[in-house]
Every structure is written in C-alpha cells, then in structure tokens.
Design a protein around this nucleic acid. Structure first.
Length: 269
DNA sequence: CTAGTGCCCTGCCGGC
DNA sequence: TGCCGGCAGGGCACTA
C-alpha cells in the first residue's frame, strides 16, 4: 500500500515523463474518486507546463507554470500507469503530454485529486497540521519526546498520526517498532529517550531501504513505469503472523481499531 | 483537548 | 463450480 516510500517512487517515475512537459489533456473519466474531482481541473491544467514534482507526507505534488499545484493521494490501491495499453474502468484520470499518456488507476477509489494555488499550498487543510517529514531534520528523539509527552495512547497509534510524523502507515510503523524493539502497545509518553533514539533511527532506515528498493508494496502496487509484478516482501514482521522474527521469537498479530498490528512479543517490550 | 470507533470502496482469497 | 464473509487501510467524521 502506498506509504511514503511508494509515493516517493511514484513521484520519481512521474518526474521522468512530466517534468517540463506541456499537458495537452487532463480529463477525469468519472465525477469523483474519494472526493469529487475539482470542477476546473481540466480547464486550469490543460495547456499548462509542468514545472516540478514533489511529495509531502503521502501526497504527490505536480506544479505547473500557471501557478497551480495538483495534489494527488493514492489512497490504498492507487497508482499511476504510464502509457497503458488500454484504458480500463479503474483509470479515473487521464493526463497526456505530447509524448505520453498517463492514467491514475485506483480500483478502491480511496485516492483523490485536489488543485490548489502553489503559493497557498501551506494553507491546504491536510498540510496545515502535518508533522515533520521523517527523513528530514525535523524528526529527532528530542522532537518525539516533546510531541509524545504525556500521551497515553499506544505508540503505534501515535506514529500513524500524521500530525506527529508525516507519511508513516501501518507497514512501516510495524517494521520500525520491531527494529527498535518497542511494543506497539507501549504508552507513547513512556518510551524512554534511548528508545526514541532507536525508534527514529529505525524509522529512517526502514524508509530509506524501501525507497532504495524502489518502493515496497503489498500485492497490488506497481511501479509507475508501467512495469507490473513489482513486489517487495522482505518484511521482518508485517504479514508474517506465526513466522519467526529475526530475534528467534514468533511474530504475532493483534487487531486494534479493526487494523492489524504485527509484532514480536519476544523482542518488543 | 485526547482517545477510540466506524465508514468509505473493490478485489482477492479461503472455506464450504 | 459458485457463493459468502473477511480482510486490506488512509483519512476523516463522529462520539464520549
């Protein structure tokens, strides 16, 4: 499922075909995904030239020379297809340049597209309260100690909260907690400073490794270069209930708020 | 303010 | 072979 590394990989793939390219067609093929497509999406983007691409948390950004930024979110099953051989029922937005046709493909339609003025992007509601980027300078043990001080919610829930850290999802949180040796149910405010240092290191290393691998996935994610069958499944705990943890213990699964948590009771305390 | 739950949506997979 | 239920989960609405 697209988390930060998958979005990063997607943006890199899009950059290769969109940067400096004029948009000759921008056409929604239905009224909405999770949210309605902006009514003026086609009009504001068609004829504009892409000046840059970026990422914030799990959001992809496509900037144009008209001062607009298209914000896309891949939800859980979204991906961009580049030069698909055909357009199918889950291709909800078509974008064309003189050289390529792209399709935003999302069977579950948890993804969405918004359009904002680039100058006002910080006022985009979902960005206003976002926490620091985990790979940036803002995520430190000191920051986390302050942000989690007095919080009694489980550390796993806090790491999934985009206001604490931006861009983490279920997979990388499970992995990072395992690497750091911290139980997902530990009260967030009670994780020690050394524990937080380990956690920060674990978050960074697991994200960097995934980006290097080209974006990790579950079963239905493809790289945006149109190549299918791209799977990474070298998780330590995620999706491995009953299998051995690297420490020799056995990976367990628990459900919190209807969401699976994979962890090793032997080495995560 | 915080913590916790339920919903959206579709495809896939296991069980019978 | 086909049907059914469970599951995947990010973000947001909602409750207490």
């Amino acid at each position: 499922m697209p988390e930060l590394p998958e979005v990063e990989t997607t943006v890199a793939g899009l950059r290769a075909v969109l940067e400096d390219a004029p948009l000759t067609l921008v056409e929604p093929r239905r009224a909405d995904m999770r949210f309605p497509f902006p009514a003026d999406l086609r009009q504001r983007l068609t004829g504009a030239t892409v000046t840059g691409l970026g990422r914030r948390a799990k959001y992809g950004l496509i900037e144009t020379d008209r001062g607009d930024t298209m914000i896309f979110h891949l939800g859980m099953s979204g991906r961009w297809r580049i030069d698909p051989s055909e357009i199918g029922k889950h291709d909800h937005l078509i974008v064309e340049t003189p050289r390529h046709r792209l399709a935003l493909h999302d069977p579950r339609r948890f993804g969405f597209v918004h359009l904002v003025e680039s100058a006002a992007i910080d006022a985009y509601p979902a960005f206003a309260a976002l926490g620091p980027e985990p790979l940036g300078d803002g995520l430190t043990a000191e920051y986390l100690a302050q942000a989690l001080k007095g919080r009694v919610a489980p550390i796993k829930a806090m790491l999934l909260d985009q206001r604490i850290v931006a861009g983490l999802g279920n997979i990388y949180v499970c992995e990072a907690l395992n690497i750091a040796g911290i139980s997902p149910t530990r009260e967030a405010g009670k994780v020690s400073k050394p524990g937080l240092r380990k956690l920060v290191d674990a978050i960074r290393s697991v994200l960097r490794a995934a980006i290097l691998a080209g974006g990790s996935t579950l079963r239905d994610y493809a790289r945006p270069d149109g190549e299918l069958g791209y799977f990474a499944k070298d998780w330590r705990v995620y999706g491995r209930e009953g299998e051995p943890c690297p420490c020799g213990g056995t990976v367990r699964r628990r459900i919190d708020s209807g969401r699976s948590t994979f962890y090793c009771p032997s080495c995560q305390k």
